[in-house]
Amino acid sequence: MLVTETVQLDPGRNPHADRARVEVELARTIGATHVIWLPRGLTRDYDEFGTRGHVDMVATIASPGVLLLHSQEDPAHPDHAVTASLRAFFERQQDATGRAFEIVELPAPAELRDERGFVDHSYVNHLVVNGGVIACGFGQPASDERAAAILASVYPGRRVVTVDARPIFARGGGIHCITQQQPAVGA
């Protein structure tokens, strides 16, 4: 299970939480056996409409041992340093079985700014469904197609469908954020 310290340990969100309590609750409610604590999320996620670091903008486990990681390739963007440090962080982590992750970078779209400043558009924020993947699109054909190809490679046999996620991101979320599935314990 991937979580961020700035979300789970936020006193405004979970005033009595500490790592041990969070891990017990995750085990009780969804059967988590191994929790990886990311130190932070993307820069803009700490703005007015942000979630203070939700992990579903940064990384996800695509399959056992395979980690999809948001990558900001432009050095001018504040998330360039953030994603480089998160990659270094994940290179030192192991999955629940003790193996190192195969890290697959999912580059951010080429667009860097909107009217409010640097964007945190992320293709990591997608939804896996029966037979498919609903992917975020940002109106940038080259970037959107590149992300769809990477998602197709880590989810073999699933059809990747891209939808325009810009209106959702403008309010601090993404496809995954608005489709909170409820996994069965032990599933």
Rank of each mutant, 00 (worst) to 15 (best):
D114T: 05
G157E: 03
T179F: 07
R92M: 05
V128Y: 08
G98T: 00
T162I: 14
V133F: 07
L112Y: 09
F101M: 12
F89E: 08
R99W: 13
A110Y: 05
D95W: 10
C177E: 03
N130L: 13
A88W: 11
A147E: 01
A165N: 01
D144R: 09
E102D: 15
S153P: 10
Q140R: 11
Q140Y: 04
L151H: 08
D95E: 11
F169R: 05
I103M: 10
I168F: 14
L127G: 03
S153R: 15
F89T: 10
A148F: 14
D95G: 06
L127K: 05
V154N: 03
I175L: 14
Y123G: 00
L151Y: 09
G139W: 02
P141H: 00
F169A: 10
V163C: 12
I103Y: 14
D164H: 10
D95K: 03
T179D: 03
I134W: 14
R158T: 02
F138W: 15
E111G: 04
Y123Q: 00
G137K: 04
Y123D: 01
A96G: 13
A135V: 11
P156M: 10
T97W: 01
E102R: 15
F90A: 08
A142V: 05
T179Q: 09
V119E: 11
A148G: 01
F101K: 07
G131Y: 15
T97C: 06
Q94D: 09
G98I: 01
E111L: 08
A170R: 14
V129A: 15
R166F: 14
V160G: 03
P156V: 00
G131L: 04
A96M: 10
V154H: 05
A149I: 04
A165F: 02
I150A: 03
A100Y: 14
V161I: 12
G131P: 05
G173K: 01
I150Q: 06
V163N: 04
I103K: 06
G172S: 12
Y155P: 08
I103V: 13
G98E: 02
